[in-house]
Computed example of a mutant assay.
Amino acid sequence: MFLRVIGRPLMAKVKQTTGITGLDVVPNAREVLINLYNKTLKEIQAVPPDEGYRKAVESFTRQRLKVCQEEEDWEQIEKRLGCGQVEELIEEAQDELTLIGKMIEWDPWGVPDDYECEVIENDAPVPKHVPLHRPGPLPEEFHKTLEAVTKKDPTAVTSSESQSRLKE
């Protein structure tokens, strides 16, 4: 029994390749992810607490951090999160940190309440040869996160409202 507890980390499977060109294996991916997620949660504190962006980032980052803390094996982390390989998650977390810095710089939530935006509507029909480029439906995980966020903020848009808006 003692040898199993001590030897388990030593017997963990070693990933040979990601199978993705240009994406190298990260042998200590779990630790890297935990550090990135903790840094993300620290950095996002600079965004006002009532902003949807902050709520969404905190929600999915906490969920991913929890999984990484609970699981030792990279395969189990990938399986439970269902968002790709741990190396891809590392890239996503690094990109999110970059975006947080840009969002703080851009300050999109700093628009004054009395600011008026001119909306120009063009009812001209789209020619048949031009594709409409409508995005596909959002994954269920997005709607679950949105519902969790809106439970804390009842003034936020509900997932059924957002789904009906997507269909329009």
Score class of each variant (00 low, 15 high):
Arg165Pro: 13
Glu75Pro: 01
Lys55Thr: 12
Val119Trp: 07
Val67Gln: 08
Leu166Arg: 14
Val25Asp: 09
Glu78Ile: 04
Thr158Leu: 05
Glu72Ile: 06
Glu147Gly: 01
Met103Gln: 14
Leu146Pro: 04
Val47Asp: 07
Arg134Gly: 08
Arg8His: 04
Leu81Ile: 11
Ser162Phe: 14
Glu78Asn: 07
Val5Tyr: 11
Pro112Ala: 13
Gly7Glu: 13
Cys68Pro: 10
Lys102Ile: 13
Lys144Cys: 03
Gly7Val: 03
Leu97Asn: 07
Gly52Leu: 15
Lys55Met: 15
Gly7Asp: 11
Pro9Cys: 05
Leu36Ala: 05
Val130Met: 07
Glu91His: 14
Glu51Ser: 09
Thr40Leu: 07
Pro139Glu: 14
Ser160Gln: 10
Glu43His: 09
Ser164Trp: 09
Val126Cys: 06
Pro127Asn: 11
Leu132Met: 09
Leu97Met: 05
Thr158Lys: 06
Asp50Arg: 14
Arg64Gly: 13
Thr155Trp: 12
Ile100Trp: 06
Val149His: 04
Tyr53Ser: 13
Glu168Thr: 06
Lys39Asn: 01
Thr21Asn: 14
Asn122Leu: 04
Val5Cys: 00
Lys102Tyr: 08
Met11Lys: 14
Glu72Cys: 12
Asp24Gln: 15
Trp106Ile: 00
Val157Ser: 05
Asn38Val: 03
Pro48Val: 06
Val47Leu: 12
Lys13Trp: 09
Lys151Phe: 05
Val25Tyr: 10
Leu3Met: 10
Ala12Thr: 10
Glu71Thr: 07
Thr17Leu: 03
